Amino acid sequence: MPTEKTFHFLHEPGNPLVLYNIWDAGSAEAVARAGAKALATGSASVAGALGYPDGEAVPLDTLLHVVARIRAVSDLPLTVDFEAGYGETPGEIAGNAADLEDLGVAGINLEDGMPPENGIRPAAEHAERIAAIRARTGLFINARTDLFLQNPSDTHAALLPEAHERAAIYAEAGADGFFAPGLTEPALIGELCRDCPLPVNIMASPAAPSIAELAGLRVARISFGPFPWRDAMASLTQAASEQLGQGA
């Protein structure tokens, strides 16, 4: 699809695609008005906005409805946080991904963490899922590793060789990008970007380097994960508190 090709070429090491994550059609319109080049959902944000916990608790049909509403209000390339694929077998997961592609989605995140945070899937098993999606769709597959997210920062340097190994395996299976949320140390990010066979996606967070610093480290994609939704909800709570307090 044209949006898939456009989305692919937006990933440029040193000139990163910045994705300010959304959770519904309204937030999609707001971020599009701000000048976004593409849109990206965050699983925790979508779940929280619907009253669900993160970790594939949102029914797949509900997720597809949310995606359809986002596509109805914006024709920007859209990537969907697909968590672990909403299925047990590679074929089932590939079918689910094809349903997203049919809605006009350009890309997905597919994580090797087993939701909700029940460890890391073997790399070969995750690669089978990537390969099945690649055989069925033209989606930009952003292969996410939860190595850094599920382990404390003082272990990240020791985990980097495994991250490199997983990136190579995922690339061979057909992935288009490598997402390493939780990795925040500039030297380690730079090393990952230097040796990774895929464009690297880093999650912006209070602990992460700035966008300019990440660009200098050759990051190709920066996403904000759940933080925009959390900030929006905190602002809403604060504003409501101020107004409701006047009537006390």
Rank of each mutant, 00 (worst) to 15 (best):
V31I: 15
A94M: 12
I130H: 02
V219P: 07
A239N: 01
G107K: 03
A135T: 06
A135C: 02
I22G: 02
N118F: 05
L110R: 06
D112N: 13
A180E: 06
G104A: 09
G216S: 08
S235E: 09
I133M: 08
I211H: 08
I70C: 10
E4A: 08
D102N: 14
A98Y: 07
S74M: 11
A215I: 05
P90T: 12
R71F: 13
R218Y: 04
V105W: 07
L10S: 02
N142Q: 03
R230D: 02
G85N: 13
V80H: 08
G177I: 07
A232N: 03
F148V: 05
D54Y: 06
Q243M: 03
D195G: 03
A57V: 07
P122S: 14
V200E: 03
E185W: 01
F82V: 12
P77M: 12
G48P: 00
G182L: 10
T145Q: 06
E88V: 14
A38G: 03
A215V: 08
E162G: 04
N118W: 03
T145S: 11
L76T: 11
F148C: 02
R121W: 07
F82T: 10
P161M: 13
A98L: 15
G247M: 01
G104K: 03
P199M: 10
T6K: 10
M233R: 12
L63K: 14
R69V: 04
G107L: 10
P2A: 03
T79Y: 02
L188T: 14
G225M: 05
H156N: 08
A232H: 02
N21K: 00
G91I: 07
G174D: 13
M114P: 01
F140E: 02
E191C: 03
E185A: 15
Y86T: 10
D24K: 01
I108D: 01
A207G: 06
T184V: 15
A163M: 08
A127F: 11
A168P: 00
P199G: 12
L149N: 00
P53H: 04
V58C: 11
F82L: 10
G26C: 00
I189V: 15
I108H: 06
N21L: 04
H65V: 09
A97C: 14
R121D: 09
C193Y: 09
A98R: 15
V105R: 06
I93D: 09
T237M: 01
L183C: 13
T155H: 11
Y86P: 09
A94N: 11
L78K: 10
L19N: 04
Y20K: 00
S241R: 07
M203I: 05
T184E: 15
N96D: 09
D176P: 05
M1T: 02
S210H: 06
A97S: 14
V46C: 07
S241T: 07
R144Y: 01
